[in-house]
Design a protein around this nucleic acid. Structure first.
Length: 615
DNA sequence: AGAAATATGAAGCCGTCC
DNA sequence: GGACGGCTTCATATTTCT
């Protein structure tokens, strides 16, 4: 950790550069893997991944599965042999490792003698012929260079050869291939294509969205402006591309829009993986930010995804029309946590915190496995909330189970027990014995250090409440990880509604020095927790506390920004209690007593933007 | 007095079926 | 496409205990 970076460093960020336009390779396989706890059986994967194992034709199914993804059959067979049939995640990792190894510089020529890579290309060609008709002159085009082939293909799609040539010159050939061969094909072989394209066409590429924007916008505006292709013309926006291309059939699992807008209402994506998660193999999509959303500073806002209708539309409208990124933390840890994040951070080159946390209940709570009945098929916990199940409840469950000692309990009892388990996140701790999670287990699941909320006068009730209101650290850290390269000397953070310091812990665990933290948190116990963590982790920076966001008016902010030298990022998750589904009494939406503090987040962020712009 | 325990549904999404 | 049921949800109000 060095603190030699000057204040100007943060001003060197090129806010005008659309760094997100560059195509991103998928995360390294090693970072996509899921760790296995030492001392545990390595074959235990999560239920989804292993659901098809054990059948008689499992091996051929597996082979077909991976060949269908574009991997050569020989490689697949080899990978299965190395990993066994039971662990499809490991097989995939091995295959990707092979692919990355093949991608070394000395093997970039597609005509090299490497047998496996020959298979690789054969599969690729098969997929092409499947998905896109080259029509009657297919043979005659085979001998053409790829670039010419691409021009022809685009011409068949209705683009002029001039448009195609210019676009290729600007955007790179392989992305045109990527686009022109059909949407479903992209979905099917997206991983292979990226690796393949990077190998064959190692030219600096642009994103597929940029390419299509380029052509579509060119067509759209051609009549109005015959000189559109001049360098000085404004860059086309994503909207056109979205409207045209995304209207096509929605492919479950690969439709990467952040939200589905139906008139005025934002709908949640399925799967809820935002711009990507380390454990799901998908390339980083393209996004363009509205100009008003550009920093400095960066900002990062969080709240519950399942808010009442219209809430996220309002949040989006206030936060400069930035599309929320909805992510379920079940892709990061063993508990679900569906949240929306609005931010103007780059989305390329994210990386996860290491070690990757356990992602199933059994991995997270190995002692519970002994007592886990086969009819409880949960592999993930539900959202960790602020309250826990009562002893009366677990007693009722125990008695219901003890009434049926021989064999499994009847189905109606199973259903009753499982419903309560899901509702209260109960785990098995003995024969017929269920229990709510302990505080330290919640800390671990949320990515906080053990005992983070323990001691110093805080009650158990308050610990559950503070933890239940907190970030999932691994999820937030993944999004914030891009800051490490942007601010190697450390960040100056304005942390609103800090809670128990989820953002601070995330940045610290990412190895990003905290030069200055201005933290606003109403709860004294939470402020004590953050202060205590700050001291225990020997932070070298300066931590400044505030009690209430109302204290931060224009004058105070100007004064702070002057003394601190500006903020690099403004992070905050405003109160959700008037938005959360668990609230039976005052689910009043964004105008609710506490949740309306969102407007203070916006007010403060906007003030910081204005003051820093003046500077 | 403070902490702990307990009881208290509805909104809204999603998949399935017809 | 609409009816229906299954499922999930950063909580609050009140009572009881220490």
């Amino acid at each position: 950790m060095n603190g030699n970076a000057s204040g100007e460093e943060s001003c060197n960020i090129d806010w005008d550069t659309e760094d997100e336009l560059e195509i991103q390779s998928i995360p390294l396989p090693s970072s996509c893997s899921r760790s296995t706890n030492p001392g545990e059986q390595a074959t235990v994967g999560d239920g989804e991944a292993n659901s098809n194992t054990g059948s008689g034709t499992s091996q051929s199914k597996l082979i077909r599965h991976f060949v269908g993804m574009g991997f050569p059959e020989k490689l697949v067979a080899q990978a299965i042999e190395e990993n066994g049939e039971g662990n499809s995640e490991s097989i995939l990792e091995t295959l990707l490792t092979y692919s990355v190894l093949e991608n070394s510089p000395q093997q970039q020529k597609p005509s090299d003698s490497d047998h496996s890579s020959s298979d690789y290309y054969e599969n690729f060609d098969d997929d092409l012929s499947d998905s896109y008709s080259w029509s009657e002159d297919e043979e005659s085009t085979d001998s053409l260079p790829i670039k010419d082939k691409t021009v022809l293909a685009l011409a068949k799609m209705g683009y002029t050869t001039d448009e195609a040539s210019i676009a290729m010159e600007r955007c790179g050939v392989y992305l045109i291939l990527y686009f022109s061969f059909g949407y479903w094909f992209i979905l099917k072989t997206i991983i292979v294509m990226v690796i393949f394209a990077t190998r064959i066409f190692p030219c600096p590429g642009s994103s597929i969205a940029e390419l299509t924007d380029f052509i579509c916008a060119a067509q759209l505006a051609k009549a109005a402006d015959p000189f559109l292709l001049d360098e000085e013309k404004p860059k086309p926006k994503r909207k056109f591309f979205e409207n045209e291309l995304w209207k096509r059939k929605r492919h479950r699992g690969c439709d990467r829009r952040m939200t589905f807008e139906d008139g005025e209402t934002i709908r949640l994506p399925n799967p809820m993986i935002g711009y990507g998660v380390p454990t799901e193999l998908c390339p980083t999509p393209y996004r363009s930010l509205p100009e008003a959303a550009m920093g400095p500073p960066y900002f990062y806002y969080e709240n519950v995804a399942l808010a009442p209708k219209g809430v996220w539309d309002t949040i989006k409208r206030f936060l400069y029309d930035v599309e929320p990124e909805f992510v379920d933390s079940k892709y990061f840890c063993a508990a679900a946590r569906k949240r929306g994040y609005v931010h103007n951070l780059p989305i390329n080159n994210r990386f996860p915190l290491l070690p990757l946390p356990p992602r199933t209940i059994h991995e997270a709570l190995p002692l519970s496995r002994r007592w886990w009945p086969s009819w409880d098929t949960r592999t993930k916990l539900n959202c960790l909330q602020t309250c826990i199940g009562s002893a009366k409840l677990t007693e009722r469950i125990r008695k219901a189970l003890e009434d049926h000692q021989e064999g499994e309990p009847p189905l109606h009892v199973q259903k009753y027990v499982l419903d309560e388990c899901r509702k209260w996140n109960l785990v098995w701790v003995g024969r017929n014995k269920l229990a709510p999670l302990e505080c330290d287990e919640v800390e671990m699941l949320l990515g906080f250090p053990k005992n983070h909320t323990r001691g110093g006068g805080i009650s158990r009730t308050d610990r559950y409440k503070s933890l239940g209101n907190s970030f999932q650290v691994d999820t937030v850290a993944y999004h914030l990880s891009v800051l490490r390269d942007l601010f190697p000397g450390g960040v100056k953070l304005l942390s609103l509604f800090s809670g128990i310091g989820g953002a601070e812990v995330a940045l610290h665990r990412l190895g990003i020095p905290l030069k200055t933290v201005v933290s606003v948190e109403k709860s004294e116990v939470n402020r004590n927790i953050v202060r205590s963590w700050w001291e225990q982790t020997n932070q070298k920076g300066n931590l400044i506390d505030f009690n209430d966001v109302q204290e931060l008016d224009g004058d105070r902010l100007e004064q702070l920004i002057h003394s601190v030298g500006g903020f690099d990022i403004v992070i905050g998750g405003s109160p959700c209690n008037n938005l959360a589904g668990s609230n039976r009494h005052h689910r009043d939406g964004l105008e609710g007593k506490e949740s309306s503090l969102f407007y203070d987040y916006f007010r403060i962020l906007d003030l910081v933007k204005c003051i820093m712009a003046k500077r």
